[in-house]
Design a protein around this nucleic acid. Structure first.
Length: 568
RNA sequence: CGGAGUGUAGCGCAGUCUGGUAGCGCACCUGGUUUGGGACCAGGGGGUCGAAGGUUCGAGUCCUUUCACUCCGACCA
């Protein structure tokens, strides 16, 4: 392609709302264009090209793994969502609207319902299973706060795949195959990534894994072990059970006057004991369907922090909200002195697993200025769950080494769904005995447009993008320094023609601009390699440039074709 | 939704306090010079100042209402 004919509106200035490198360079390089803000973007020729290349890597690997591509209707009848029960549950991110006949529709934010519908209409027998269908299509989520360019748009390109099986064993086999396939995809795209244990969120199901592209600008905190492969989203991370080297406080059981000790620190100082032996009680309002809600107490060791997503899952709530002082009073709870053992009637209590069989604990008396010592949870019946937010320095559940935090961009997520969609939606097959069984499902997503942002987050310098081999808009860029120099032009054109004929995708910068402007654009666009044909051509030399590190090498003009073929 | 802020040319901004001809830089168009690090000279085009209402002889500027967007928190590929 000739630069002079391509629509590549590069700019020197940074749009005022862009803070992330990927956002800045994708806009400045003329890859994408904002549609009046609000998380919507147009893909310009260069951006579309990169998107297609990334998409083709995804497609190629999926097809190799035996998946079949389909394309589902973007506009989805609301009735399907009502069937699955998600019409209400999904919340405001689901864009709903009516057609001229007043029928309700949604713009698909994910397509479990549609795909199950497709399959239940066409699959009858176990002989037709397993099946793995996917599409790479637009999704729309009416995000509360879209930001960071392609990283979190409202409209985005997603690959969503769904598999259907006769048994959960077979589904797990496919789940593992998808994990391997995803690893191949991210590796081919040149990304440094980590597969981590994850929370399943609104999609549901169990045993989900996320593919995190490692980048400081990532929005997710992930917990990783450097000694082994263990990695998990902070929302799902677990640790080896903690022990405390400090001895437990004397087990005198009783009510102690503890004025103004409403925090763990104060309490720890008052009793001269480790927070490990204190009980932290956190009150939250759990929100459910149809506007229902209730106050819940979450209790854990004073040395631990509550992980809200885990807490939310423990009570099967849609969300947890902070609680106001009035609400506390109304519920009969005393701030700073709450306790899982002295609870007003009708308040739900959830206990952290670490409290199971704990003894010699100090907890609130649910009475102002009083705490109870010598509390024991031994034999105490209760609703025990993992509620703990794993901290840096906690020990790896697999190998016992120290864990640390890092940041990641969630680029893929795979779920073992089971039958939670096939049952309500009636997606059944007839087994060998002629009995109807619900299909066992898995679901697998990749944020394709987000991958563009992730690639740049991981591969850029202060000057611009550095595309990886399989994501680059072109294999090579030829820069003719002075378009008025007949010799430079002749060599540029000749090289361009020969390389194109050899199957290479080449961008020829044949613009009238000065050298500096072309070089700046090259650096901004981030094509992996360039050939600069300039002044040194008088001495029979041209330059071969590697974008990464901007390494330059002089090559005799007559050898440049072979050099390019060999290096690129 | 809670908190903060911004809406003026395609982009980035000044002008608003103190009402009086709509400005600057980049980009764009024409001509010329220039061609190894975002050139220069000359000329030119482009705006219902987010929207509606009000005050005034006169509103980008003051008042009221409203909308949109951005940034910080809870959701997600």
């Amino acid at each position: 392609m000739r630069f002079s004919r391509l629509l590549i509106p590069t700019t020197k200035e940074t749009p005022n709302d862009a803070t992330l490198a990927s956002h800045i360079f994708l806009i400045r390089g003329g890859f994408i264009q904002s549609v009046g803000g609000s998380g919507l973007y147009n893909f310009l020729p260069l951006g579309k090209k990169v998107l297609d290349r990334v998409r083709s890597v995804v497609k190629d690997e999926l097809d190799k793994a035996g998946c079949q591509e389909v394309s589902l209707s973007f506009v989805t009848p609301a009735s399907l969502w009502e069937e699955s029960g998600r019409y209400e549950k999904y919340g405001k991110e689901l864009l709903r609207f009516k057609d001229r006949k007043n029928n309700e529709f949604v713009l698909g934010p994910t397509h479990e319902e549609m795909m199950v519908n497709l399959v239940r209409q066409s699959v009858r027998s176990y002989k037709q299973l397993p099946l793995n269908l996917y599409q790479i299509n637009l999704k729309f989520r009416d995000e509360i706060r879209p930001r960071f360019g392609l990283m979190r748009g409202r409209e985005f390109l997603m690959k969503d795949g769904y598999s259907f099986h006769t048994s959960s064993e077979d589904m797990k086999r496919e789940f593992d195959l998808m994990e391997e396939t995803y690893k191949k995809i991210f590796t081919r795209l040149g990304l440094e990534f980590r597969v981590v244990e994850a929370d399943s969120g609104a999609i549901g199901g169990s045993g989900s894994k996320e593919f995190m592209v490692l980048a400081d600008s990532g929005e997710d905190t992930i917990v990783v072990c450097d000694a082994c492969d263990y990695g998990a989203n902070i929302e799902a991370a677990v640790r080896k059970e903690k022990v405390c080297e400090v001895e437990a406080p004397e087990a005198l059981s009783g009510k102690i006057h503890t004025p103004d000790t409403t925090t763990i620190e104060a309490l720890s100082a008052f009793f001269k004991t480790d927070p490990f032996y204190l009980v932290k009680t956190v009150a939250k309002r759990a929100l459910y369907d149809e506007g229902k809600s209730e106050v819940v107490l979450f209790a854990l060791r004073g040395s631990d922090e509550l992980q809200e997503v885990k807490a939310c899952n423990a009570v099967h709530a849609n969300d947890l909200a902070d609680i106001t002082e009035e609400e506390l009073k109304e519920a009969g709870l005393i701030a700073g002195y709450m306790s899982p053992t002295a609870v007003p009637e009708g308040i739900k209590v959830v206990l952290d697993n670490n409290l199971k069989e704990a003894s010699s604990m100090i907890c609130g008396a649910n009475e102002k200025d009083y705490h109870l010592t010598g509390s024991s949870f031994s034999g105490l019946q209760g609703d025990y769950h993992d509620l703990v937010a794993v901290q840096e320095g906690d020990l790896c559940p697999c190998c016992g080494s120290s864990l640390r935090y890092t940041k990641g961009i969630e680029a893929g997520h795979i779920f073992q769904l089971g039958t939670q969609y096939s049952e309500p939606l009636g997606a059944t097959f007839l087994d060998e005995n002629g009995k109807a069984q619900p299909m066992v499902m898995g679901t697998y997503g990749i944020g394709v447009s987000r991958l563009l942002a992730a690639i740049i987050e991981q591969n850029h310098d202060e000057k611009g993008c550095i595309w990886t081999r399989e994501s680059a808009p072109f294999d090579l860029q030829i820069i003719i320094s002075n378009i008025k120099d007949g010799e430079q032009v002749a060599l540029g054109e000749k090289l361009y023609g020969k390389l194109k004929a050899s199957g290479m995708d080449v961008l020829l910068d044949d613009r009238k601009d000065r050298f500096g402007a072309k070089m700046k654009d090259y650096e901004l666009l981030g094509v992996p390699y360039a050939v600069v044909i300039g002044k040194k051509l008088q001495d029979g030399l041209v330059e071969f440039v590697r974008r990464e590190g901007l390494v330059k090498e002089e090559v005799p003009a007559e050898d440049i074709f072979d050099a390019v073929i060999q290096k690129v």
